[in-house]
Design a protein around this nucleic acid. Sequence first.
DNA 1: CATGAATGAGTGTTCATTCAT
DNA 2: GATGAATGAACACTCATTCAT
Lengths: 220, 220, 220, 220
Amino acid sequence: MPRVDEGYLASRRRQIMDAAIACFARDGFHRTTMQDIVAAADLSAGAIYRYFPAKEDIVSAIAAEHHFREAVVLASAKDATEVGDVLRDLARVSLGRLSDPAEQRWRRVTVQLWGEALRDDRVMGIVRSGLDAPIEIIADLLRRGQQDGHVPAGIHPESAARVCAAIFQGLVLQQAWQPDLDIDGYIAAVTALIGSFVVPHHGQQHGGSSKASHPSPDGS
Amino acid sequence: MPRVDEGYLASRRRQIMDAAIACFARDGFHRTTMQDIVAAADLSAGAIYRYFPAKEDIVSAIAAEHHFREAVVLASAKDATEVGDVLRDLARVSLGRLSDPAEQRWRRVTVQLWGEALRDDRVMGIVRSGLDAPIEIIADLLRRGQQDGHVPAGIHPESAARVCAAIFQGLVLQQAWQPDLDIDGYIAAVTALIGSFVVPHHGQQHGGSSKASHPSPDGS
Amino acid sequence: MPRVDEGYLASRRRQIMDAAIACFARDGFHRTTMQDIVAAADLSAGAIYRYFPAKEDIVSAIAAEHHFREAVVLASAKDATEVGDVLRDLARVSLGRLSDPAEQRWRRVTVQLWGEALRDDRVMGIVRSGLDAPIEIIADLLRRGQQDGHVPAGIHPESAARVCAAIFQGLVLQQAWQPDLDIDGYIAAVTALIGSFVVPHHGQQHGGSSKASHPSPDGS
Amino acid sequence: MPRVDEGYLASRRRQIMDAAIACFARDGFHRTTMQDIVAAADLSAGAIYRYFPAKEDIVSAIAAEHHFREAVVLASAKDATEVGDVLRDLARVSLGRLSDPAEQRWRRVTVQLWGEALRDDRVMGIVRSGLDAPIEIIADLLRRGQQDGHVPAGIHPESAARVCAAIFQGLVLQQAWQPDLDIDGYIAAVTALIGSFVVPHHGQQHGGSSKASHPSPDGS
DNA sequence: CATGAATGAGTGTTCATTCAT
DNA sequence: GATGAATGAACACTCATTCAT
């Protein structure tokens, strides 16, 4: 069945990667055999090697796809100007996506990629660039926020951006472990945290949000 | 009291676990062979099975030990009363420990345990209790903080506690990937975040820290 | 006359065999894959099977072609009458051909065919007939030489012919291993050997050559 | 069954190499699977890898052993002084050994090693040194023979030595192909050839054999 | 007729675990 | 108790060959 169009090849890769993700999510990279993937993709043992030269390449293809998806989410934030809103949006979108059940398998694979990165340079390159890009974007936002006065001047933008990334990563991990996690509660807590940190735009000193989410300690 | 000195057994287990940690940190669980551990521990192939019935048991023993250490750190926070101080202390101690080079190997193993938990119920039990306990403690602190009025009432204590845990987990991950990370910058950013969130004790609206790190936008 | 031009088929076979020889010379029969040959012949995977039903058939076709070429060289010797001259000619032509760089690849393939013959009856048949024919021709020459008195009577013609063949085979092997071998020196040594063995025609008893290259033992 | 003495290890290697030789002689290197060797050696699949890290290492170990044996045969010739006798001895011993049925399997393996050398540098190194050493020894003998006047001065000693080696190699090949070959006829032909080439020591023109196989040049 | 994607048995090798000594 | 040689089921990957298009 020669002479296949480009879409056919792409769909074959998809089929393999989907099968692999299912296997990896269930059993992990190392407990998943090529036979498992091949069976899940309904292929023959040899066929898979037309699309991926080695098992490792399936792993990095999955990592790269993962990374690419994240990048798309971030792209919207890139040229935003309003720090607080953007951070809140980012939190809502990024974290909100975690509640999508279709993404659940991804989470389990993601957590394994983190470990895999430690001994596979290619995977490390992918996950690192998937971390560094958002950090840079958020750090930029914070820097601009500092210039505008909406973000405390004393903090180090990059470090704060890393904390934001950490919040995302930690929730990915916790949800992988506990799929029925209360994501909305999370988002609320994160938004509150951001709210208390970022001074809103129109002159008030984070007062408004403070009022809403932070009753005056003096009871007034 | 068994035939051999109990301390002897314990020290043998230590020796094996140390060797295993070194191997796991370098090569990962699955790329590490029993022969590797045996060689690193300077033991014979058969000997190791007197102390651990299977490779998996070494992994869970390491996870359990890891968890136990964390528990010790937390114990101090358990009966503290002052929310902000305790959180800041926790951040300083927990995160500060990350800069200890002796702990670096642990980080790499930790990240792998996270993935391993997904398919080994024993490991999952251990890491989950290592997560749930701190969350409960922090949630308690936050609840008490809300009663005292130092913590915004609108947030869900458990979710906020999870965010705190996430901050810790994310940094563990980032440091495993990038050992030369600026930990102190992190701690500062986290402390600032906590500071903006938790109203300090003595009447002022987290004024001191606010003044230092968060200059009034209007310049007053 | 078949549907396609017979010459077309032949040229396709040539193309495949040339590609195969190049691959076999470089990597050996067993390390060469059909894909290698197909790529070198600029064909499709399926196409090759129209010309050769199996990989083994390419090998035996190559062996047969090899054998056929040798036969052509020998044909000239068949009805010669003068033993010494013919042997010398044979040596010069057969061995001389070894220095042709275009034949170098053949040498490498030949050496492999020798081993292949041991477990492929078809190849064995071909290489054996490629050995037996020259042996028979040379043995005949020697027999005639013995009748004429130019060849020592005590030797067994077939065995001596085998020695001649061995000289050829050994040089093929040595040159395959060491392409920069001094072929001309070889030829000279072989010619000298023949010269000391075969009594020349016109009365002199290997005297002339003996004088030049073989000082009288008594020093005269 | 730990703590085995050195002889045990050596005998295991022997057992494996013998099994491998039997398999290689029957099926060739590439058609022989590790399972074949393992079965022939009555071992388990994994056991063989304690003694040989890879299949290739069995091949080179066999080549090296082969080479070593040849070296022993040659050692006796090294400091001999009488050219003709030594060459005849060498021929008798080297070629005579070919008729030993226990060596038959070796022959088949040898022929394959020749081809293997072309693409395995280690094997090439071994077979080349197994060729170069005898050539050097024989060339030396011939050089000394030239000084003594027993060997024609016009020949190039190294080339002539290569011809001697070729005679040996060619017979190895022919016998591998045809085990019932008349080895004694061979030896006789080779000895006659040497006899006609090398002038005997004590004044007489290698008289005895000369008389039988080579009519007196002076017609007496 | 040509194509080249698919097949699937088979390859060399690994490694957690056992157990005779 | 300790040893380390042996085990053997897996494993990732290959490749001669086929056949739907």
